[in-house]
Simulated assay, not measured.
Amino acid sequence: MALAFFAFAVTGVQAAPVDVYRGTLGGADVVMELGQPKAGGEREGRYFYVRNGVDIPLKGTLGALAEALPINDEWRRAQSDWPVFSDAKQRSMQWRLQPQGDFLVGEWVDGFKGKKLPLSLKRIAKYDPEKIAPQGVEAVTKTIVQGYGSSVSKGVALTTQSAPYDYLKMIEQKLEQGREVVVNPSLAWRPVRDARTRFWYPRLTRHPDAKILSQTNALLELRHWEMNLEALGCAGSIYLSSGPEAGSLGNYNHEEVKVSYLSSALMSVVESGSNGCGGAHPNNHFDPFVLDLLRGGDMDFTRLFKGAKYGEYRLEFSPQMTGFIQKSLVNQPEPHDDRECNDFLPEYMALMLNKPDKMSFVISGIGHAMGACLGSGVNISFKKLQPYLKPDAERYFQP
């Protein structure tokens, strides 16, 4: 727990605003984040090469800012404090910088091989990482399940104002383009991926409403970026952990993201997999979400179903619809093993759509011990749902 908490600390959670710099290290583009000087002039920060997006911790005075060494040998693993900034012979890699207005200039010195490279960085932003960091339950959950990962709270919009350091980590990448999937001449989507993290994520490429297309892609992009940051955070744990996942992508490179349904009114996407980076157990998950392609944004199911409301933890249906779902669940033909999961559906229910014309009520968010039940549930045709729909809802349920 302590090590995972420290991971958040060194990746940007500090009490005071930090400065963000961008420039070059030799011929490579880099972005650096640097905290305010403490007693004696010591600072803490991090930087990444734009080409790989992996954070490397920094610590020291401006004239001798040491770069963390990966925990990849017996000596470094034996140390009591991570990250490690020098070896047993006190050799280190240092940034030797001097301020010149909004610039920091100097040289990068490899104390192991004697190599030197010029450094030039311009200050481009200032922000407070504490305002976007995971807090409370989210921070504890990420520590237990994820172990190491992103220092940005879920749902934070990455912009040049709110999170300039992480925004630059994402925005600079040219995404690989998959094959376009055409539903009809005015409706299509395409998978894209960041070569650094290697999993595919959808984007709309055609929709009758240009504004809806743009809004939807902004939401898809944010979710994609959040997962990318988690994966790159795990890759950066090579400087913070000796665990077997340290330096990996936390299995995000095997994440499966599917578009299960797309019409001009609704888009249903499922994120599923088993990822983690040294937590107590892997994050086995089956997380569907549905986007409203008529109004924009996430689908508000209370506008579709009679008597539905959002409770403290989940969507709650009317007694009539709840009974209908339970009856449909019990009566459907399914393997016996799935029936053992039926009792969990009301408490851990998520909604998704399956083509050509079905809504699915499935188990999502259940604890690790019952992970085998993830995704099980019942499929109900649009036609059978009609008695429970509000009058304006039927325009959403077109195959």
Score class of each variant (00 low, 15 high):
R193G: 02
V50R: 13
V257E: 11
R339T: 11
E256V: 15
A188G: 03
P391S: 10
S186N: 14
R193M: 06
K355V: 02
V269D: 05
N251I: 01
F48A: 09
R76L: 10
F6Q: 12
G273L: 07
M32N: 08
D392M: 10
S214H: 05
M1Y: 09
Y261T: 04
F286N: 11
Q14S: 11
A265M: 09
D392G: 09
M227W: 08
L232A: 04
K355C: 03
T141K: 07
P282L: 05
P387S: 02
L262G: 02
P391A: 12
R51T: 12
Y127F: 15
S241K: 09
L204E: 01
S214V: 03
P387K: 06
Y239N: 07
S151I: 01
V330M: 12
Q135K: 15
G247V: 03
F301D: 04
Q100Y: 00
D209K: 06
S150K: 13
P319C: 03
A393D: 07
D298P: 02
E316Q: 12
V18I: 13
T11Q: 13
G323D: 09
S328P: 00
S237C: 04
E340W: 10
F103E: 11
Y396E: 07
V10C: 11
K115N: 04
I363Y: 10
L25S: 11
L315W: 03
T143R: 09
D55M: 12
I124M: 03
T11R: 15
M32E: 02
R76M: 10
A39I: 11
G23E: 02
A210N: 00
S274Q: 15
M267S: 01
F85H: 08
R22N: 00
S268Q: 07
G26L: 04
